[in-house]
Amino acid sequence: MITLEHVSKAYKAGIPALNDVSLHIDKGEFVFVVGDSGSGKSTLIKLLLKELEPTEGKIIINGKSLGAIKRKQIPKFRRNVGVVFQDFRLLKDRDVYENIAFAQRVIATPTKKIKRRVPVMLSMVGLAAKYKSYPRQLSGGEQQRVAIARALVNEPKILLADEPTGNLDNHNAWDIMKLLDEINQRGTTVLVVTHNLEIVKAMKKRVITMKKGVVVSDERMGDDDAV
C-alpha cells in the first residue's frame, strides 16, 4: 500500500531531513512512527501527501509512484489519503456539519450524497448531537474527532495522522487512539506519527522509530516489547 525506496529529502540548508529511508506498509496495517523532534517524521508525512518531493528515491502509494503524478493530478491523489493534524485545522467559522461537508464539497460531491454521508460520519465519531456546534464550543478531543470525520468522509484508503493526540489530555488521547484503531479495523490503513510512547506501547502495533532522518528500528510490538 505504501512503499518508500531509498528516499532522501534534503532542504536548502543541506542537512537531510530523511536519509535513505526504505519501508513498506501493507494494506490494512496500523503503524506508529515515533522519534524525537527533527527525526524526519513530519517530512515523511509531507512526502506521503506529495506536499514535498523527495530529493532521491521513490515513493509508491496504492501502486502508483508519486513521482509519476503530475501537478494537476495531485488533488485526485489526495482524495485517497485522509489526513489529521495535531492542531485539528478546522474551519472556525463553520459548524461541525459544515466542516465535514466541506471535504466533500471541495471534490464536487452532490449535495444529496453529502446529506447522506455526513450524519454517518458524525455517528461514527460520536458527535451526532453536536453537528451544529462550532469548533470553539468543542473540547480538544471533540475537535480532533471532527477532523477525523472530515479526513474519512471521502472514504480514503489511507489515513495519515500527524501527532493527533499532541494537543490532548491523556483521557482524550486514548479516545482518539481507540477511534483510529476502530477505523483501522474497518480496513483503512492508518499511519500515526506520535510522541506519546505510553499509548504506542499499550496499542501493540507496528512501530517505526526514526532518528535524524534514518529508520533506526521497525518492529511489531508484542506484550513484552518496549520502545
Binding site: L49, R89, F102, V106, N154
Partner: peptide, 15 residues
C-alpha cells in the same frame, strides 16, 4: 489556512 486545508483534502486548483 482554509486554502491549505482545501488543498490537502484534494480540492482542485480551479475550485
Amino acid at each position: 489556512e482554509e486554502i491549505a486545508i482545501m488543498k490537502l483534502i484534494g480540492a482542485t486548483d480551479y475550485f
